[in-house]
Simulated assay, not measured.
Amino acid sequence: MANHKSALKRIRRNEAVRLRNRYQHKTVRNAIKKLRSEEDKKAAEALLPTVVGMIDKLAKKNIIHNNKAANLKSKLMTQVAAM
């Protein structure tokens, strides 16, 4: 167990950040699933900017890698365009 006050605080902080990152990542994954399952092109086009923004936010905070974010966005845009 940690002996220093700063180490104890760091442990608490790491856990809080981990939970927040996990929540945000799961929320984005659910939004992507919702977009992929969308049948209506108009609804998908309306939802796409929101999902892309969420993906960009994850990449900016290093929750996911920048290349993974780019791949996800590319696949989603291709899918919506092909509807």
Rank of each mutant, 00 (worst) to 15 (best):
M1C: 06
A2Y: 10
A2Q: 11
N3E: 07
N3Y: 09
N3Q: 13
N3A: 11
N3T: 09
H4F: 06
K5L: 04
K5Y: 02
S6G: 02
S6K: 15
A7P: 08
L8F: 00
L8G: 13
K9D: 01
R10D: 06
I11M: 11
I11A: 12
R13H: 11
R13E: 13
N14R: 14
E15P: 02
A16S: 10
V17R: 15
V17Q: 15
V17K: 15
V17E: 15
L19E: 11
R20N: 05
R20V: 03
R20G: 00
R22H: 14
R22E: 15
R22G: 05
Y23N: 11
Q24W: 04
H25F: 04
H25M: 08
K26E: 06
K26D: 01
K26M: 05
T27K: 05
V28E: 05
V28K: 01
R29Q: 08
R29W: 03
A31F: 04
I32N: 05
I32R: 06
K33R: 14
K34R: 08
K34S: 08
K34D: 10
K34Y: 01
K34A: 09
L35R: 08
L35M: 04
R36F: 03
R36I: 12
S37R: 09
E38N: 07
E39T: 15
K41S: 00
K42N: 12
A43G: 00
E45L: 13
E45S: 08
A46L: 14
L47W: 06
P49K: 13
T50S: 15
T50G: 12
V51Y: 04
V51F: 02
V51W: 05
V51L: 06
G53D: 06
G53F: 03
M54W: 01
I55P: 01
I55S: 04
I55R: 02
D56V: 03
D56P: 02
D56T: 03
L58N: 04
L58R: 04
A59L: 04
K60S: 08
K61E: 01
N62W: 00
N62A: 10
I63D: 05
I63Y: 05
I63W: 01
I63G: 08
I64N: 03
I64E: 02
H65V: 05
N66R: 13
N66E: 13
K68T: 12
K68Q: 14
A69D: 04
A70E: 11
A70M: 12
A70W: 04
N71A: 15
N71E: 14
N71Q: 15
L72W: 10
K73N: 02
K73A: 02
S74K: 14
S74Y: 10
L76A: 08
L76Q: 08
L76R: 03
M77D: 06
T78R: 10
T78W: 01
T78A: 12
Q79T: 07
V80P: 06
V80S: 10
V80C: 12
V80Q: 08
A81G: 07
A81E: 14
A82V: 07
A82W: 07
